[in-house]
């Protein structure tokens, strides 16, 4: 990549007002660095990944409303987590977290277990029980 080819496309970096560093060659073939505001092929990939997450959140929300899963799964998706990550944050085995997705099990959860989840998601226990 030549220095003048370092892409300056619009991207999500703009919101934080920073440009990333790329390596490229100058007119003499010497390596140098140049800042890039973004590159379309990866902006599209990132936006797709975010859409994918939003789809997962919507899907979890729908299933909570249908009584098929507990709000824990919804909040997990909202925080871009999967079961493994959530389990390590609450300090429980994965199978236990998965069990807590069952609405019938969720209803009977003890206050301090609910508290653990609420703390991880940085919300109150009441907020944990509801979805927006």
């Amino acid at each position: 990549m030549k220095k003048e080819e370092v892409p300056q496309d619009k991207s999500n970096l703009e919101s934080a007002n920073f440009r990333e560093l790329c390596y490229a060659i100058d007119e003499n073939g010497e390596y140098t660095t140049a800042n890039s505001t973004g590159w379309e092929p990866k902006t599209v990939a990132l936006n797709n990944a975010i859409d994918e997450i939003n789809d997962r959140i919507e899907d979890a929300k729908k299933r909570v409303l249908e009584g098929k899963t507990s709000p824990i799964e919804y909040h997990m998706e909202l925080h871009k987590m999967d079961v493994g990550i959530l389990a390590s944050y609450v300090g429980l085995w994965q199978w236990r977290v998965k069990r807590h997705f069952k609405p019938s099990v969720f209803k009977k959860l003890k206050m301090n277990t609910l508290q653990k989840y609420a703390e991880v998601f940085e919300i109150s226990v009441d907020e944990l029980k509801t979805i927006k």
Partner: peptide, 29 residues
Amino acid sequence: HYLGQVVRMQEEIGTGGGGFRYIYAAFLQ
């Protein structure tokens, strides 16, 4: 979705472009 992730791993912040190949070329030079 999978293909998008391949490109992200290759180009996302930190690789210097081209899945670290340009940084490596700079090292060789």
